[in-house]
Design a protein around this nucleic acid. Structure first.
Length: 293
DNA sequence: CTTATGACCTGATAGC
DNA sequence: TGCTATCAGGTCATAA
């Protein structure tokens, strides 16, 4: 579910709960939601592989580790221990990381795949009904970079026009597809791609190679603005998204096109269009967002 | 190499 | 009430 603003909100609330705490125990209820170093395939590809996964140790799950900080790149989180061990988390579409204070019940115990216990008695769980998310264990931060973070583009929250244009290159794809490509830019998903294109007055159908320098500047600025405002609203909760405390985000009230197909454009009053582009439902204003601009 | 497509999952909702 | 069809915020392997 989560795009960059939701993951950043989770990062902040999770770091507040974990920093300086020692993990005393970890339990993995679904082994196939965790990828350890040396596992076959080593990613989302959990099907079609016959080799058995390696044995998960307590150390891999950060047992006895003291949490130094929680990092983020795009939609990926990393819980970093002070001895360098890392647990990387991707929420997929429906993932959540929830912290339950000692003695308090979790809002929902269903679909919990991993649980940790802290020295304070607080508990942390990773739950993900749809199981599109996952957890990757890394022996150190170099391994995190090498195996994962070097494979995605720069973080969308601070993207500048020159870098964006360089990485998107002269692609023949439509701009909507390029914004969703995490190797180009890390953190933008379907909601904020549409919102950023509306803000920059660019059609989602515009061919990437055709964009002018001034258009790239508007786009980069719009991406940063849309994501920054969404973080200020503590993320957008359409249905499932919660931060580490179980709180929803209020960003849904600020959406100008996402989910508003058939309604009036807030800028020109015309009707917002909705159609599948790049395999995702896409909403835009054909008047305010011309193909060539 | 680049680009497009189907597949992976569960749950909520709309329509009959 | 209960059934079926459709859709959902992401990413990957595979095919063209």
């Amino acid at each position: 579910m989560p795009e960059l603003p939701e993951v950043e909100t989770l990062r902040r609330t999770l770091e507040a709960a974990l920093r300086g705490r020692t993990i005393v125990d970890a339990r993995v209820h679904r082994r196939d939601m965790v990828v350890a170093p040396g596992d076959p395939a080593g990613g989302w590809s959990r099907s079609g592989e016959t080799r058995a996964p390696v044995r998960l140790t307590r150390a891999m799950m950060l047992s006895e580790g003291r949490v130094e900080r929680v990092d983020r790149l795009g939609k990926r989180l990393a819980i970093v221990a002070d001895d360098g061990r890392v647990i990387e988390i991707h929420l997929g579409m429906s993932g959540q990381v929830l912290v339950a204070a000692r003695g308090r019940r979790l809002a929902s115990g269903e679909h919990v795949h991993v649980r940790w216990r802290l020295d304070t008695g607080d508990r942390v769980v990773f739950r993900d009904p749809r199981r599109f998310g996952g957890i990757w264990t890394h022996e150190n931060e170099d391994a995190l970079r090498e195996r994962s973070w070097s494979r995605v583009g720069p973080d969308a929250l601070t993207i500048d026009a020159r870098v964006l244009r360089l990485r998107a290159g002269d692609s023949a794809r439509v701009i909507k597809a390029v914004l969703l490509d995490q190797r180009v830019l890390a953190g933008v998903g379907n909601i904020y791609a549409d919102e950023a294109l509306f803000g920059a007055r660019i059609s989602p159908r515009a061919v990437t190679a055709d964009l002018e320098p001034a258009t790239w500047r508007r786009l980069a600025g719009s991406i940063r603005g849309v994501l920054g405002r969404a973080i200020a609203a503590r993320g957008t909760t359409l249905r499932d998204y919660r931060d580490a405390r179980g709180e929803v985000g209020e960003g849904g009230t600020t959406l100008r096109v996402y989910g508003r197909g058939g309604l009036a454009c807030g800028r020109c009053g015309g009707e917002l269009f909705s159609e599948t582009i790049a395999q995702r439902t896409t909403t835009w204003c054909p008047v305010c967002q011309p193909v060539s601009a």
